[in-house]
Design a protein around this nucleic acid. Structure first.
Length: 496
DNA sequence: AAAAAAC
């Protein structure tokens, strides 16, 4: 049994880098995936968050690049032989840095390209030639079209966070990129979450794949303590203060569903005396990288973020994750809470649940196959509460560039009376009685806090779980889209 | 109900 990196017979330069980084024993996904990737077969790999998937594919990939000379007859001295695709810029940056460390003592070159940064330095690096290219889809297509990147010699393609890469928002770009790659190649897919639909879609991009599942897909890390607290919207910041204080937590990710909500919440928490920064897609790339760096260095304690930060980011010893908003997709819940409890450390995940979130929490419970109990928080009197201010003023105060128009909610679609009536009825039936006791709409600090919300929350909670799914449920739409795409999905066309 | 990814 090879459970130690030293038993792997990695090429000397790789073994040296690994030893220098202090890696000794392998995690289960590494133990299982590395030998298979070394054979050059296609892989679909699922393992919990924070268990070392990046090393699980990049080490054997580099080993193969070292062992097998390029079969290229092209004059390019360093054709791109391996392509690694990721869904966010920060993640691409992180994975590229990790690969560069592993490849440090080899002659293999690697670089990363992603949007929001000047094309020129990236172009210079690409023209020098790299064997390993890490990228986000949009910017890679730009470089392909500008003929800065030639991908007709690619032997390996990795889709990290594969289920996201195959999702409706990314699939068109992904298909275009794949159409530039040779058909004869190895394809590796990794993620902590795979839905049955995505698995089927994924299999159309794989040839005789080996499936590696360390534990069940969608399983949350056992090192994360998951808590669900009942809190109406005006009590949510108060809940954060209370949990931070009572558990003695210094640092945390706080996830919010919208960019505007993210900017507002960050501003409010900052005002309430917490060292906070915001990370979302309407910030400049410079601001995004700075926010992440400030959190990593401990300069700020709270990173208020959208799902741009939900996946893959590996920051050591983050003690807690808050879901200020319950995520729309249950898979995102698994990824969000995976920012804590990494590499065997312990972590706390707190989800703040308001009256209208019942369906979403029921979806999470079903996905992670763990019973969820909704609890009440015992507040100390001095925690701030109340509605946070809104509009463009908040946007400006949050230090955002622009006027915030981009982040304002889109105008609602034209109402359809029949649908609206049905939705209204179903919504009322579904959530009847679930509404917390304190339906506080009080302006900031006006009314004293009243009784706890959870007392009457549980019965309706149970009811909501077994209630029929509403036709407006967020999960229906993506699934339908995926199914349609699956029907339409065609494996990539051959090289021009 | 949203976010992400290109200029």
């Amino acid at each position: 049994m090879t459970s130690s990196f030293s038993n792997l017979s990695l090429a000397e330069p790789l073994a040296r880098a690994v030893a220098e980084m202090g890696y000794e024993s392998m995690t289960p996904i590494q133990e299982q995936a590395i030998p298979v990737v070394l054979t050059g077969q296609d892989v679909m790999g699922a393992a919990q968050t924070g268990t070392g998937k990046t090393a699980a594919f990049s080490l054997p990939l580099l080993q193969r690049l070292l062992k097998h000379e390029s079969s290229s007859t092209s004059p390019a001295r360093h054709p791109v032989r391996a392509l690694v695709l990721l869904p966010t810029r920060e993640l691409a940056d992180q994975v590229a840095q990790q690969i560069a460390l592993y490849a440090k003592y080899t002659k293999l070159r690697s670089t990363v390209v992603f949007g929001g940064m000047d094309m020129k330095p990236q172009t210079i690096e690409l023209k020098k030639g790299v064997e390993v290219l890490v990228a986000t889809p949009g910017r890679l297509l730009d470089h392909i079209e500008a003929k800065n990147a030639v991908l007709n010699q690619v032997e390996y393609v990795v889709l990290d966070e594969a289920d996201r890469m195959l999702d409706i928002g990314f699939l068109p770009d992904l298909q275009r990129i794949l159409s530039y790659l040779p058909k004869q190649r190895t394809t590796l897919l990794f993620s902590a979450t795979f839905s049955p639909e995505i698995k089927r879609l994924a299999s159309s991009y794989l040839q005789n794949p080996i499936t590696i599942e360390v534990a069940r897909p969608n399983e949350t890390a056992s090192t994360v303590e998951q808590r669900f607290y009942s809190a109406n919207d005006d009590d949510k910041r108060r809940a954060i203060h209370q949990v931070l204080k009572s558990r003695g937590i210094k640092q945390a990710f706080i996830f919010v569903n919208s960019k505007l909500g993210c900017a507002r919440l960050a501003r409010s928490l900052e005002r309430e005396g917490l060292k906070t920064t915001a990370l979302h897609g309407d910030k400049s790339q410079d601001e995004r990288l700075k926010a992440l760096e400030a959190f990593k260095s401990g300069e700020v304690d709270l990173l208020v973020c959208t799902d741009v930060a939900a996946r893959g980011l590996d920051i050591k010893d983050v003690p807690a994750v808050f879901n200020f908003d319950v995520p729309f997709n249950a898979e995102d819940y698994v990824h969000r809470i995976g920012r804590t409890g990494r590499a065997g450390a312990s972590g706390l995940a707190v989800t703040l649940v308001s009256g209208s979130d019942a369906r979403l929490v029921a979806d999470i419970e079903k996905l992670i196959k763990k019973k969820i109990d909704l609890e009440a928080i015992e507040y100390e009197e001095d925690q701030p509460r109340g509605r946070i201010n809104d509009g463009r003023r908040a946007w400006r105060e949050a230090g955002e560039t622009g006027d915030g128009r981009d982040a304002l909610p889109a105008a609602p679609a034209a109402p359809r009376r029949e649908r609206d009536q049905r939705v209204g009825r179903e919504g009322r039936e579904q959530h009847r009685g679930f509404r917390p006791a304190v339906a506080s709409r009080d302006p900031f600090f006006e009314k004293p806090y009243e009784a706890s919300a959870a007392a009457d929350a549980t019965p309706a909670w149970e009811a909501a779980k077994s209630a029929p799914r509403s036709s407006v449920s967020a999960n229906i739409k993506p699934k339908r889209k995926v199914a349609a795409l699956f029907k339409a999905a065609q494996p990539e066309t051959s090289v021009q």
